[in-house]
Design a protein around this nucleic acid. Structure first.
Length: 510
RNA sequence: GGCGCUAUCGUCUAACGGUUCAGGACGCUGCCCUCUCAAGGCGGUAAUACGGGUUCGAUUCCCGUUAGCGCUACCA
């Protein structure tokens, strides 16, 4: 496919800074510096989280620096409060950056809209060296050009029309204040090589690369210019980003070349997909980290799950803390192929991480949820909430399920599950439970074993099996057929409440 | 259309040419345990897209086909 290029007059063989098997030993940079460079569109996409995470892990693993840079060069997409939200979400995930907004390092500012002067100075250099030029073409002309090219089934690209303008013409147009952009002057017939840690060597034909706009007519740089200038100035050693950037990387390579700058090392991450393998999008479920946070996912599970989408430690371990991920992570073991974001597995991770959490943390979450629930006016002692947590933890994947699945710990049942009623409540149930109430009444401050003993006594006296009583009590006390062990439930509810609920049930079954 | 990337169970993945009738996890499912629901234990289900090479030997290397995805903006 590249045979037509075999007689190219020039080839760019770019500096490929790897030594032996170790990509990380670099000649020109002695410090690992990576960046996460989102555009503030309002929320953190889970794909963005994965990119941020890999950058973070790589930095931490290699004693490097993790930079957060805000790419807000598209004024049309500006969203109020997006940067604050982004930082908040990143912090919630535990991905603390070393340099960035509100945490200035040597290479700031870290918000691109505050770096306009830098981009213009660099663009001026490019124009002077002939690597870029002013373009005064109207949107209409470009549109028409594109249409014609499409009609002829040609590659759609700018025709370098304004490159032919004389110095005088340019100056006079500039003086007239005619709107213009600055374009990259891509030389033809070159082979542009991108070396990527994950994908190996990828070659591009420069004839297929458009004279990319570098500075828009509003004076803001495009991503292509800004990211190259900033990555260089911020001494970024490794550019770790999504695969959607791979096709425009040759443009970036050409820019580095035009500036006579060394290349960073590239690593293009595989994409995340919807269940139908299309690019992960809002239409098919939640894509914002904030959504998962709101739904009660633990940051530990989200981070752990997302880490394993495209990377694995080479062992069979799946459950990791953030520290564990740092220790095991390497860019070489990142996969090439995209991965489906599978909620079921995320849920399973939440289940696992929920049981790894200590009681105190779960208690804090539960109290927060209760405060936002219909039980906001009630208060429970930490002691009893801890007992509820202990009873429910093996049965849930989310803390909120304690409230959803076992409301009977917080209020008496108002209805009884019909199916269970049919199956477990017989004609003689009421009478049997009366006997049980007698036994329970004899107890003072009973512990769970005493409930068991009392129930046993009642069953013996009635000459029935324990099971007969147990199911009836469970239903009377909880309204449902499932849940923690009966005696645990009774102990948590307490003697008085237990008896009250059994009485209510007997009354209502009449 | 052009360019590029990718291709192992439904999904996430392991296997870095040969201890593989392809391993683990999620899901689904059977049994055990059990006062229920879970959890847990022990099983089961299910994959190398297709076709050519290279090789004594290909999931693994090469080529092609097919499919999926990405990019093709004065968006990132």
């Amino acid at each position: 496919m590249l045979s037509s290029l075999s007689n190219c007059s020039t080839s760019i063989y770019l500096h490929f800074p790897h030594v032996g098997d170790n990509f990380y030993i670099m000649n020109h940079l002695n410090q690992i510096r990576v960046r996460f460079a989102p555009s503030p569109t309002g929320y953190l996409h889970v794909g963005g989280l994965r990119t941020a995470l890999y950058n973070y892990l790589f930095a931490r693993k290699n004693n490097g620096v993790f930079v957060l840079r805000i790419e807000d060069t598209d004024r049309a997409r500006y969203v109020e409060g997006a940067v604050e939200n982004l930082i908040d979400t990143l912090n919630w995930c535990g991905l603390e950056y070393d340099e960035g907004p509100n945490k200035e390092g040597e290479y700031g500012p870290y918000i691109q809209s505050e770096r306009l002067k830098i981009y213009h100075e660099h663009t001026e250099r490019l124009i002077q060296t002939g690597n870029a030029y002013n373009c005064f073409c109207t949107a209409e002309r470009i549109e028409k050009l594109r249409e014609e090219q499409q009609k002829r089934n040609e590659q759609t690209k700018y025709d370098k029309h304004c490159l032919k303008l004389s110095k005088e013409e340019i100056q006079s147009k500039l003086n007239e204040g005619i709107p213009h952009v600055v374009r990259l002057n891509v030389t033809i017939d070159q082979k542009v090589i991108v070396d990527d840690i994950i994908r190996g060597r990828v070659e591009f034909d420069s004839n297929l690369i458009d004279d990319q706009v570098l500075i828009k007519s509003d004076g803001f740089p495009t991503y292509h210019l800004a990211n190259v200038v900033d990555d260089h100035l911020m001494k970024i050693s490794h550019v770790i980003r999504g695969e959607e950037w791979l096709p425009s990387t040759p443009k970036h390579v050409l820019l580095y070349k035009a500036f006579s700058w060394d290349l960073p090392i590239f690593a293009h991450l595989p994409l995340l997909f919807n269940p139908d393998k299309s690019k992960l999008s809002k239409r098919q479920g939640d894509v914002a980290v904030e959504d998962y946070r709101a739904k009660g996912y633990l940051k530990e599970s989200l981070v752990n799950f997302v880490a394993l989408l495209g990377w694995n430690p080479g062992t069979e371990q799946e459950i990791f803390s953030l520290e564990g991920l740092v220790n095991s992570f390497s860019l070489e073991s990142v996969n090439k192929s995209g991965a489906v974001f599978n909620i079921e597995k995320l849920n399973a991770f939440n289940f696992e991480h929920l049981r790894l959490k200590n009681d105190k943390d779960v208690l804090a979450i539960l109290k927060e949820l209760l405060g936002k629930s219909k039980y906001a006016n009630h208060t429970w002692s930490d002691e009893s909430l801890l007992l509820i947590i202990e009873a429910m933890r093996p049965r849930i994947s989310f803390v909120k399920e304690i409230i959803e699945n076992s409301p009977y710990f917080f209020e008496a049942p108002s209805t009884y599950d019909e199916e269970v009623l049919k199956k477990r409540w017989k004609d003689d149930s009421s009478q049997q439970l009366e006997k049980l109430i007698d036994e329970f009444s004899k107890l003072t401050n009973p512990v769970k074993e005493q409930y068991e003993e009392a129930l046993h006594n009642a069953a013996n006296a009635l000459e029935i099996s324990n099971g007969k009583l147990i199911h009836g009590v469970r239903l009377a006390v909880s309204g449902v057929g499932g849940g923690p062990g009966l005696y645990d439930m009774l102990f948590i509810l307490g003697k008085d409440e237990t008896i009250r609920r059994i009485r209510t049930a007997i009354e209502r079954m009449k």
